[in-house]
Design a protein around this nucleic acid. Structure first.
Length: 803
RNA sequence: GCGCGGGUGGUGGAAUCGGUAGACACGAGAGACUUAAAAUCUCUUGGCCGAAAGGUCGUGCGGGUUCAAGUCCCGCCCCGCGCACCA
């Protein structure tokens, strides 16, 4: 009998799949397609980690399961290679990022192959390949054409360590996302001209589509909150003795009569202007401090309110009262208008501020949620009052209904070398001009020194022969943009490129993209907001451009948990508790056990802790499958006495496993297969028959194929098949064969289980009740009295209600 | 503070539509095989009482709805994640 030896069978089948290019696919409109993908990895020097193993165990199980249902399955792989780690490594070691990246890709590719993932390798892409980033740049120029890419000077988060600006999403607890350890410094802000994508223009459409997405609620609400739509009004306040007008944004126009002061953000242009002579010094001082504080700790500051009176007064347009204008850093310049009307009676922050500085508090809404002290609006319900007051403001031309968003435009400039150059030429006469399509790609020049100089520019700025060029419009000397794009730009369209990865004439052929995409299953455990919002944003734009027939790139998002270390804490190199999936394979467990184990650990969406005994248990299970098939093959197959039981177990298991795979409940489908194998072990004691057992074992092999594909191929071949298991159709079941001829009825008295009955399936309802009451233990609890009620849920339970 | 998850044996988890709580696995215990160990196989395994039959308690806590609640409703507590002075 052959022993189960993953070390020999796994490389064997990996080689066969490779040689046959077994998972290459092409557009075929006659077949249902399934597009399954993980979030393509950043190929770090450290190689694959358990998170990758988990993601692709899920992706591959889905891919192989759907292939078994005759689907044309796209399961691609690519590399998200631009970014800081490669560049920082280059600065440290002098190795060119491209060279280090190539080495890492080779390593990752080998590791994915050793996992046995059924990838179409002909579609491999790499975001730092000019053949790819040419089209990233092309998309930039299209956004630029449509006014969705623009430059503006603004205060931006600045990482002193990496010497680059950061997007809001890359700021974690006031620190750079790449340097957010306890000893790392807080980030600061710098005023620079930057490129932005106008994602805010798509806030509403991105929001509208969220309910229709088959995504986890968690991610959907995270995106909803991130977009942060608020409906309210802008109100103009005249300033007493000035021509200036302060425009505030409020979500509570109904509380206008209770606005007893105004607050400006320190950065607000009027903050200094409105300072009266006797307040000027204090105001200037406060603003200077606040701006510095913004740099340091406005984010994780205590919520203690600070502020300063400008000395000026505005007029509340509703009451006609003079209300003082203050400057305080609890008002953010970047949101709304950077100015608020403070209603201390009905806003906690305004109340805290008013109490601290002795400002008046006027209640304008009572316990019945109706307006008081609000002139003609008194008695109106607050909800109705919102509209009424906005209408009143509009009539008087001093306010309008207004919607604002927390989301800001997407800052994409990076002052770093290792990214896709922004395809713009700055001409003294024509300003920023997009590089024409026939001059793309703007190839990243090779340089000696990758390190930013701290001058706010990338290393590209020092490559004169690259920077100096001519204007595409007038041919006069001009200079290239030296910023590169945020890596998230590269990953915002790769799912579409997978549909047509070799195309050198266009980013993709819409016909191919529309066949394969949207992605049916997108698997990952990270990027709840940033990537998953950007990829949606771009696809909405592509849809408008007629490049896709759909707005939303991802139908179902499979957002899995983290695999923690054995001690339940996060794996980290410094703690030395990292599990390397390749080690697990090499230890002799093999990829099949690794894959099956990570799926058996629990529901995919939950975090789990690695358990070295757990994988041993799964290996034991696979070993039992192997041994069972060997024993069948070695037997004389002459015993037919257990055929019915074997048949029944097979149909029941196939149904359960199929349904569980469909709802991505891998852990329960694996446990069903374990039960099946346990059952077959009991039956085999009497002996094997030929046909019933062959069918039973073939179904078993087919069912484990999405989990343990190497073993499945090997056993399938041993069961003398010419075809490979991934080319076969998924086993079917017949509900009629699952039905048992007896049923188990639980009998309760007053809701407590007292007996179980084994009755023939066709027993009449009345007969079941009679039998239930007659059961010894039941009769004892019912006693002499007549039951009040006997409830029978057919085939399941009888509940006898007494007294 | 707000939002979203979650809380079930010693452990990971199962219970898909309100119907036998604890499937499956790990761990533990016992046995078989073995010179021995490993591997493998078999049995037991929520707590308490009991020789057993059986009883009793039991899904974070307190109420409620129901013939019946891990599941539904109300009020709390705890843990994780996300956002966080967004007017």
């Amino acid at each position: 009998m052959k022993r189960y030896d993953p070390k020999s069978i796994e490389p064997k089948w990996q080689q066969i799949w490779d040689e046959k290019m077994a998972f290459e696919v092409a557009v075929d409109p006659t077949r249902t397609k399934t597009y399954a993908s993980g979030m393509f990895p950043y190929p770090s020097g450290a190689g694959m980690h358990t998170g990758h193993a988990f993601s692709w165990a899920i992706v591959d199980a889905i891919a192989r399961f759907n292939r078994g249902h005759g689907h044309n399955v796209l399961n691609p792989m690519g590399w998200d290679t631009f970014g800081l780690p490669a560049e920082n490594y280059a600065i440290k070691t002098g190795t060119a990022p491209a060279a280090a990246t190539a080495t890492n890709i080779a390593n990752f590719k080998n590791q994915f192959k050793r996992m046995g993932v059924s990838i179409d390798w002909s579609r491999e892409i790499n975001t730092s390949d000019p053949r790819y980033y040419r089209w990233t740049q092309w998309i930039f120029t299209k956004l630029f054409e449509r006014d969705l890419a623009y430059q503006k000077e603004s205060m931006q988060w600045w990482c002193d360590i990496d010497k680059t600006v950061l997007a809001n999403e890359q700021v974690v607890n006031g620190k750079c996302w790449r340097h957010d350890g306890p000893d790392d410094p807080l980030i600061s802000k710098k005023n620079i001209t930057q490129w932005f994508f106008k994602i805010t223009e798509y806030a509403d459409t991105l929001l509208e589509e969220i309910p229709s997405l088959d995504w986890p609620e968690k991610i959907k609400t995270a995106q909803t909150n991130w977009i942060g739509r608020s409906v309210g009004a802008e109100v103009n306040f005249a300033v007493d003795g000035h021509d200036e007008i302060v425009t505030v944004f409020t979500t509570r126009p109904d509380t206008l009569f209770g606005a007893t002061f105004l607050v400006l953000a320190p950065e607000h242009p009027l903050a200094r202007q409105l300072a009266t002579d006797d307040q000027r010094t204090a105001v200037e001082q406060y603003i200077d401090d606040a701006v510095k504080k913004t740099e340091m700790d406005r984010m994780n500051d205590t919520k203690e309110k600070t502020g300063v009176f400008t000395g000026s007064y505005a007029i509340n347009p509703a009451t006609g009262n003079k209300v003082p204008v203050w400057v305080a850093d609890y008002v953010l310049y970047g949101y709304g208008t950077g100015a608020i009307m403070a209603v201390p009676a009905h806003d906690d922050r305004d109340r805290a501020f008013a109490e601290k500085f002795g400002l008046p508090i006027v209640t304008v809404i009572n316990d019945q949620n109706s307006l008081v002290s609000s002139g003609e609006f008194d008695g109106l319900n607050a909800n109705d009052a919102r509209d009424a007051i906005v209408n009143w403001l509009a009539e008087k031309n001093i306010g309008t209904a207004k919607v604002t968003y927390k989301m800001r435009d997407w800052l994409i400039s990076r002052q770093r070398y290792w990214g896709a150059p922004i395809p713009i030429i700055h001409c003294p006469e024509h300003g920023a001009v997009a590089v024409p399509e026939d001059q793309l790609p703007v190839v990243l020049p090779e340089v000696e020194d990758f390190a930013p100089k701290g001058d706010g520019k990338s290393a590209l700025a020092h490559v004169e022969e690259w920077v100096n060029t001519t204007c595409p419009t007038c041919g006069q000397p001009a200079q290239r943009e030296t910023d590169t794009m945020d890596g998230y730009a590269c990953s915002s369209w790769y799912l579409l490129r997978f549909a047509d990865p070799q195309n050198d004439d266009r980013a993709w052929d819409p016909e191919r993209a529309n066949y394969w995409a949207p992605v049916d299953f997108y698997v990952g455990g990270d990027h709840a907001v940033a990537h998953l919002l950007y990829v949606r944003f771009w696809t909405h734009v592509f849809h408008e451009m007629g490049l896709t027939s759909f707005k939303e790139p991802v139908k179902k998002l499979v957002y899995h948990g983290y695999i923690n270390a054995e001690d339940g804490t996060k794996m980290s190199k410094s703690k030395g508790n990292v599990i390397d999936p390749l080690d697990i394979i090499d230890q002799g467990y093999g990829a099949d056990a690794l894959r099956t184990y990570v799926l058996f650990m629990g529901p995919v969406e939950l975090d789990a802790s690695w358990d070295s005994r757990g994988i041993a248990g799964v290996y034991r299970f696979l070993n039992r499958v192997w041994t069972l098939v060997q024993e069948y093959l070695d037997s004389d197959k002459s015993f037919t006495g257990n055929d019915d039981a074997v048949l029944h177990a097979r149909h029941k298991t196939v149904r359960k496993v199929t349904n569980d795979f469909r709802r991505l409940s891998f852990n329960t489908s694996i446990s069903a297969l374990m039960e099946y194998v346990n059952d077959l072990y009991k039956y085999k004691v009497d002996g094997f028959s030929d046909e019933a057992w062959r069918n039973a074992l073939e179904a078993l092999v087919q069912c484990i194929a999405p989990l343990a594909p190497h073993m499945a191929e090997e056993l399938w071949a041993q069961l003398s098949h010419e075809t490979m298991v991934h080319e076969t159709m998924w086993p079917e079941w017949d509900d009629a064969l699952i039905v048992e001829d007896t049923m188990t009825i639980a009998v309760q008295v007053n809701g407590k289980l007292r007996a179980t009955l084994e009755l023939a399936k066709d027993t009449s309802d009345d007969e079941v009740k009679t039998q239930a009451l007659a059961a010894e233990n039941v009769a004892r609890f019912v006693g002499d009295s007549e039951p009040l009620k006997v409830i029978y849920i057919p085939g399941k339970i009888v509940n006898v209600v007494v007294r």
